[in-house]
Amino acid sequence: MELEPSHYPAQRAAGVARACISYRRGGPNRVLTLSNVRRARLQVRGRERGPRAGTGWIKSMKLLLQHSAPEVHFTVEGELGKNPDDADNKFYSRIKSLKEPLVAQNIPDSFGIVPPEMEPIRHLAFSACDYIIWQNSTENTWYNLAQIQDVRQVKRNDDYLEFDYTVLLHDFVSQEIIPWQMQVLWHPQHGVKVTQNSRQPK
């Protein structure tokens, strides 16, 4: 069944697929956003649904909502923006050279301001939150990162950077603000990995 691309079901399904892609391809200097949905189709297989959508640089995506995390298949046409390697390497070197572990709160602040040096930390949070969004989305949710409440760098003896984030997720459907904790590893050559995450009490 064809869906109207601008309507809620198509936009929400494409948002979950975008979250999966962003987690796999995003990082401190690359944030993937959904610009538009060009086409969407709903296939019902028993209790499973699979909208298909083409967005931005993503040629096609297939999302299968089921009892576990949504299953996403996608193909990419062209490049996903500029190659962030140089900026990623500079960020990596800067954080590795800090004498004291990085600690920050309230990104953005109550005025919506993000200090320039915190932009890569925020972008990394976007990619990591996209894992949580992808893994926890259902037909009755629509999550978005609202704010980083707290982020603390965890010193390691290997080449990875590790951050302990507490974030606030906004569910557009219920209008609920949900605290979530996540442990995030990142390396310029290996990308983002969420090693632990848990929904926190309000």
Rank of each mutant, 00 (worst) to 15 (best):
P201V: 08
L65A: 05
N140A: 11
G191T: 04
L80W: 02
V31Q: 07
V184A: 00
A69K: 12
N136I: 02
V72W: 04
A19C: 05
Y160E: 11
S60Q: 12
T141Q: 07
A104C: 09
E71P: 00
G81H: 09
I177R: 14
E48I: 10
M61D: 00
L3C: 03
Y143S: 00
Q189P: 01
A13T: 06
R38E: 13
Y131D: 04
G27K: 00
F172D: 03
P120M: 05
K99G: 10
D130N: 15
W180C: 12
G191M: 04
V37E: 01
R45W: 08
E100V: 10
N157C: 04
E176S: 09
A128D: 06
Q153E: 15
Y8D: 13
Q183A: 14
Q135S: 14
S22N: 15
L98H: 07
V44F: 08
Q153D: 13
I148D: 02
P70G: 10
W57F: 07
G56N: 09
K193Q: 15
R39G: 01
F172Y: 11
G112R: 12
E162N: 04
K59R: 15
E176A: 07
P179W: 10
V154I: 14
R45M: 13
G112L: 05
P5I: 02
P84E: 08
Q189G: 13
R156M: 11
N83F: 02
D88N: 15
Q66Y: 07
R39N: 08
C20W: 11
S22T: 02
P28N: 06
Y8C: 03
E176Q: 14
S93H: 07
R38V: 00
S174L: 05
E100R: 09
H7F: 09
E117F: 03
A10D: 10
